[in-house]
Amino acid sequence: MHAQIVLFDGFDLLDVIAPYEVLYAGGAASDGAVDVELVSAEGRREVVGGTGGVTLWATAALDPERAGLVVVPGAAGRVGTPGETPDEDAGARTPDEFLSVLLGRAVQTGLPSLLKAAMDRPGLTVATVCGGSLLLGLAGLLKGRRATTHHLALETLAETGAQVVPARVVDDGDLVTGGGVTSGLDLGLYLLEREVGPKIAHAVEELFAYERRGVVWRDRGPAPSAP
């Protein structure tokens, strides 16, 4: 399985690094059944994150024709609504910019069309960490889909047309979404279990000395009774 993790200006560092390390370790534990790379909509470039200006290098362009898994992180910034429009000509972001601004900028790039192509391609799974589902929602790609995000943004996610499920990880078939920022670990381990097998996922859990939290929500079984 070839995994591509998307970088965009203002990305959240842990949203990227947590699933990257899990998937990379899964590839090592499975003799190469998984490989992972960092990509951007624009191709090879240095991408500035939203956490203290830390930069990562995208080694290739996001390519839905090559990937079996595409992981979309959220942005790192303040939750809320900005009181004024930022100066788009300034060229630099401050570390405390609002998430809505950072995600809004990403939606104005070529990223949404590539993500739509990924979601339309049979056999490809799109996964998100934290605000990554908001990015998909703002791009109009989550209407009617079951998804989750950070607990402070569940209402905003619902406004994009998604069917919100307040779970740590939500499996909606070819769309798998994670909640808060640390859910990238849980998401990565679940994807390893689902795509490669529980033995590989368990080996990575042992390596990282981390146990997944919560039940992965899937559309199976009877619905719970009303309290």
Rank of each mutant, 00 (worst) to 15 (best):
T94I: 08
A92C: 06
T51F: 10
V169L: 03
V79W: 08
P64L: 00
T51N: 12
A28K: 12
G50S: 10
V169Q: 01
E88W: 13
F98D: 14
R121I: 14
L124W: 00
V72K: 04
T85G: 11
A58H: 05
G161L: 00
A153D: 14
V39S: 09
L124R: 05
E84G: 14
L115W: 06
T149A: 05
R44M: 13
T109S: 13
A61E: 14
S40E: 11
R146T: 06
T128A: 03
S100R: 15
C130T: 13
H151K: 12
L141H: 09
L138F: 08
E97N: 05
L154S: 11
E37T: 14
R78Y: 03
E37V: 12
P64D: 11
L56I: 05
T109H: 01
G50P: 01
L114P: 04
A75W: 01
R44Y: 03
P95D: 12
D171E: 07
S100I: 10
A67F: 09
D35R: 15
G104Y: 04
R146F: 00
Q108A: 15
F98E: 14
V36W: 00
A29M: 11
G53D: 11
V72T: 09
G80M: 05
V165K: 08
D87L: 07
R45C: 13
D35S: 15
G140F: 01
G68N: 14
A90I: 03
V169F: 02
A76G: 03
P64M: 02
A28T: 14
R66L: 13
T55S: 15
S30F: 01
E88V: 13
E97I: 02
A139C: 04
L138P: 03
T128S: 11
L56R: 04
A153H: 06
P82C: 06
V169N: 03
G132E: 01
G80Q: 12
P86E: 07
A90N: 13
A117W: 00
G140K: 10
M119K: 07
G132D: 00
P122C: 10
A90L: 14
G132R: 02
R145K: 12
G74N: 05
L111A: 07
P82A: 13
K143Q: 14
A127C: 02
P166D: 14
T160W: 04
L136S: 04
K116D: 12
P95W: 10
D174C: 02
L154D: 04
R45I: 01
L135F: 08
P166F: 05
A67C: 06
A29G: 11
A33C: 09
A167H: 08
A158Q: 14
A92P: 00
E155M: 08
V72F: 04
E46A: 13
G161V: 05
L135Q: 03
S100L: 05
K143M: 00
V39I: 07
T51G: 04
T109Q: 08
E42K: 15
K116T: 12
A162P: 10
P122T: 13
T149P: 07
T156F: 02
G43I: 13
Q108C: 02
G173Y: 00
A147Y: 02
L154R: 15
V164P: 05
G131V: 00
D172M: 00
P86F: 01
L134T: 06
S113W: 05
L135I: 09
V39H: 01
G104M: 10
G104N: 05
R44Q: 15
T59V: 15
T156G: 12
D31R: 15
V70D: 14
G32V: 11
L157N: 10
V129Q: 02
D87W: 01
A139K: 09
